[in-house]
């Protein structure tokens, strides 16, 4: 199954306002691709959690948004990248209740539950990349 990218755009995540913009852009794309309202909401919420991580924990970074197709389905793939301190223990960071910023600790694990595919790569001192995919 070859993944085809139909459209691609990159947006900065450098402020709280950028987190709001990221939500709005993902909402627009999800609507265009044909996601149902509840799935739009799930994707937008996952985006909000991950964009906040990029800004708060990663010290800012960027979001790459792609409209993808695998032959039978279309969907959105979103990549969040920062060059921050990285996460020493990714497995633990994915558990509910794990928080370093005094939050609820639902960010990573919660976002994972809201999408179809989730991957995370993090290297201490280099940064973190989170990729999510949701299919229509």
């Amino acid at each position: 199954m070859e993944l085809k990218v139909l459209k691609r755009s990159t947006f900065p995540i450098r402020s709280e306002e950028d987190i709001v913009k990221a939500r709005q852009i993902v909402r627009n794309w999800a609507n265009e691709v044909g996601f149902k309202l509840v799935d739009q909401t799930k994707l937008v919420t996952a985006t909000s959690e991950l964009a906040r991580n990029t800004f708060v924990h990663g010290g800012g970074g960027e979001m790459m948004l792609e409209q993808v197709e695998d032959g039978t389905r279309s969907g959105l793939r979103i990549t969040f990248q920062d060059h921050g301190p990285g996460i020493p223990d990714v497995t633990r960071a994915l558990q509910d209740g794990y928080s370093t910023a005094g939050g609820l600790g639902l960010g990573l694990g919660g976002a994972k539950r809201l999408v179809h595919e989730f991957s995370i790569q993090s290297e201490v001192g280099k940064g973190t990349v989170v990729i999510i995919v949701k299919w229509v």
Partner: peptide, 14 residues
């Protein structure tokens, strides 16, 4: 609260 917001919140764990 909108229904789709409620559904999403529960899956998120809130």
């Amino acid at each position: 609260m909108q229904p789709e917001v409620a559904i999403t919140m529960v899956e998120l764990g809130l």
